[in-house]
Design a protein around this nucleic acid. Structure first.
Lengths: 124, 124
DNA sequence: CGGCATCCAAGCTGATACTG
DNA sequence: CAGTATCAGCTTGGATGCCG
């Protein structure tokens, strides 16, 4: 096997192979909306609709898709209350909580980069 | 504007809009191969072919595409030596170096997750 | 209210062949 | 050696409509 990949251990998950833990981590949270969803759950549980609306430009389809993946990957847990109308609440699991500091760092880095390169929209 | 996005400041870059610095950061490094490339440059400059071969499964087309984007985003710099055959060397810029610790954290998190959930391929 | 299914357009990606 | 061009298949993601 190749010795010069980041962490040269093959990870098998959900029928796919990842060449290293970094590639795997990116699969888990690197999608367009996944880390945004995790970010918004950092302060505690949220209702489904509330969570979806909190992310600008997130369609219902992609929200369902992303939150299912996060749930399946055990980063988020889902609780359904048997009421009418139905109520669904999402919260972070321990693995999900563990990644929040990294996401915050990434956010900070993005801020710094945007500041350094003057990318903030005028008037914002 | 929405108040409840992660860092509620619109970033404009390269003709696109990002709802927050986290979404922007993920655009810069969240692709399948970009952070792997950055990771492999962390210990110093590398030649083009050497860098490409260091990443398992990276086609020439995607390597060119990714490294061009990283260069355009000022995370990587490129130096061409006027020789025959040609020699091209890539290295991290300061912005690129600044993100390495975050990538390392992400890698570590992925390792931990894989360990916790027994995802490492047998015999690896 | 929560969320699934279908359709379809747009973008991504690998294979291959080619240039300086 | 480094990089580009073209094409075809797959994936992504939004819009819409429907169900419990």
């Amino acid at each position: 096997m190749k010795e010069n990949t980041c962490t040269p251990k093959i990870i098998q998950y959900d029928g796919k192979e990842y060449i290293c833990s970094l590639a795997f981590a990116l699969h888990l949270i690197g999608d367009k909306y996944k880390s945004l969803i995790l970010f918004h759950l950092k302060d505690g549980e949220m209702r489904s609709g509330e969570l979806q609306k909190s992310i600008n430009g997130l369609s219902n389809r992609m929200f369902t898709f992303s939150i299912r993946a996060l749930e399946n990957d055990l980063l988020v847990s889902r609780e359904v209350f048997p009421e009418v109308p139905p109520r669904v609440v999402y919260r972070l699991t321990d693995s999900g909580k563990a990644i929040i500091p990294i996401i915050l760092e990434l956010d900070k880095w993005g801020q710094q980069f945007a500041k350094d390169h003057h990318l903030y929209a005028p008037g914002e």
